[in-house]
């Protein structure tokens, strides 16, 4: 059975990353925007693991774990912030959270 080439994984993670970036830029729902960031972090994880596989090192796997832990911490704080925003404004549309421009 032929192995899947490494470049395919790298391409996939690059595509996922770009999808995350475009989701961040173009989506208007705060939760979706937040999910796009998580998608970007997961793309990074995939990259780390692919390279770890290619380099035959265990380090890359460890980095992926660090990223997951940090992403979890970030999600905790982020969802709490999104909750308070929703409580104060009753909207999750990012364009409505805009009270400070002159």
């Amino acid at each position: 059975m032929a192995e899947v080439p490494v470049s395919w994984f790298l391409t996939l993670s690059a595509v996922l990353f770009v999808l995350g970036v475009s989701g961040f830029l173009f989506r208007r729902n705060i939760i979706t925007v937040f999910m796009s960031i998580e998608l970007m972090l997961n793309a990074v994880n995939l990259t780390f693991i692919t390279f770890a596989y290619q380099l035959k090192q265990v380090n890359g796997h460890l980095f992926a774990f660090f990223v997951m832990v940090v992403a979890a911490a970030e999600a905790t704080v982020g969802l709490a912030i999104i909750l308070t925003v929703f409580k104060n404004r009753s909207t999750l549309n990012i364009d409505d959270v805009n009270s400070m421009k002159n």
Binding site: I37, V44, F48, E74, T84, V85
Partner: peptide, 29 residues
């Protein structure tokens, strides 16, 4: 206003971190 500040700081900050991290992954590779 503080909510809004926190939200924007959080979203843009995490976005920036993800970018930084992708660069780190490429350097590692």
């Amino acid at each position: 206003r503080a909510n809004e500040a926190a939200l924007k700081y959080f979203l843009l900050g995490s976005f920036a971190t993800a970018f930084f991290l992708y660069g780190v992954a490429l350097i590692y590779g």
